[in-house]
Design a protein around this nucleic acid. Structure first.
Lengths: 233, 233
DNA sequence: TCCGTTCAAATGTGATCACGCTTTGGGAGA
DNA sequence: TCTCCCAAAGCGTGATCACATTTGAACGGA
């Protein structure tokens, strides 16, 4: 009778709270790649003991959202061209399929919500609000994917976004938020038309076009998906 | 100077050892879905304190190889038709791509090794050695995928196999190990021919054919990939 | 015989501490 | 001024304990 009615032992643990906080920072690009983090430091910052932080960080390391150096130090992973290329590929393979599977469950009302999110997204783009844009883009994609209850595909995709997050920050700081080709509207139209192939294509195009644009601007071009850069590193 | 030359702090932690042990049990199907596991129980069984077990189990929960009930009890997840279908889809989307990317790095010597693994695999099939078969099949696929150093795709695929493992045990116990259509030889031929499309097709066929056969025999047929079963649960 | 209550055992969670290793910063020597 | 070295601080790891909650079975009443 404290505050929740759920009753069925659904109380949130502290390490879950910490996990969600760190995750939100990562997806929102509010952490700097390469920066080292420490259990005691995070614990002090979040006002908890090192213990829950340990569990949350361990989980993020397992999801490859954080990395551990050979000397067991924790840090936000740097993006390499190879990693970037693999992430694009994984997104391009999984997200259109997730969208296709969600389509039968998406209603006209869902499209309405997507339209609102997309409007906010463009507003953030106009005002140069990077964090807002990233959050809205995340919301747009996962509002689609989560249409179908998924235990595998959507968590997999979330882990990919988690790995992209810290990189996005750098990217948008560098690229600005200018290009904007609107595959989101194509996606919404495809949902209304119940056309799963068109929806998958719109998602695929959104990923490939956006990511390639970002990758080229950061990694000195010449990074074509499916054909790894032959250079060392 | 103790035993390893690496020197650079590469010593293995206890929770890593526990993680690898549990992981091996899961992939090898040496655990029973639905069975509850406890930290103290595992700790006693493995001769360590509950602490490293806690970290290993948390990691496996993060990878969805174990699940946590709402009342925070740990157990090996049961397979549902929906989960099964999603796992097939994820494998079918990721593994051919991983193979395609590995192809440029695979040598004739690698194919030789694959041939040896495949021979062992068929021997295990003949003698009805389920664990041996599962291990050999795992070795075959990942010997291909790991041709290319991968930080994203291969770990993703490993997590999928981890989720399949406990199910396989039941499956092979029920189906026997009879059907055996050899896409593995097609894969090896494709590697020798440097034909990435053919390699991807062989992997895809191996996955879809094998998995659909298994799924049909366990889930009372009528489960076609990409078209979720409409029944409740 | 069946169902509800109760109570002890067992569970995951979080805190705290000790340990070995790595990092780092300052001082001694050239 | 530069280099080397050593000591102190800081790190992740693992052990142990207290605690709230959950489980499971014995018990008593209908």
């Amino acid at each position: 009778m404290s505050s929740e009615v759920s009753g069925a032992g659904a109380r949130e643990t502290m390490h879950e709270r910490v996990y969600r906080e760190l995750r939100s920072r990562l997806i929102g690009g509010r952490v700097v790649p390469g920066r080292a983090v420490t259990l005691r430091g995070l614990a002090a910052e979040l006002g908890v003991s090192p213990m829950p932080v340990r569990e949350a960080v361990n989980r993020l390391v397992a999801e490859r959202a954080l990395v551990m150096t050979p000397s067991r130090r924790i840090s936000v992973p740097e993006m390499t061209p190879e990693r970037f290329d693999e992430l694009i590929t994984a997104r391009e393979r999984l997200e259109p399929e997730a969208a296709r599977r969600a389509l039968p469950h998406l209603t006209r009302a869902d499209v309405g919500r997507l339209g609102k999110i997309d409007a906010e997204l463009e507003e953030h783009l106009r005002t140069g609000n990077v964090e807002g844009y990233v959050a809205a883009n995340h919301a747009f994609h996962f509002s689609i994917y989560r249409g179908s209850p998924s235990e595998i595909l959507v968590p997999l995709i979330e882990s990919l976004w988690l790995q992209f997050g810290p990189f996005m920050r750098i990217v948008y700081g560098r690229v600005g938020t200018t290009w904007l080709v609107d595959y989101h509207e194509q996606a919404m139209a495809a949902i209304l038309a119940r056309d799963d192939a068109a929806l998958a294509d719109a998602i695929r195009a959104d990923i490939l076009d956006g990511m390639r644009h970002i990758g080229n601007s950061v990694f000195d071009s010449r990074l074509s998906p499916g054909r790894p850069a032959a250079s060392g590193m």
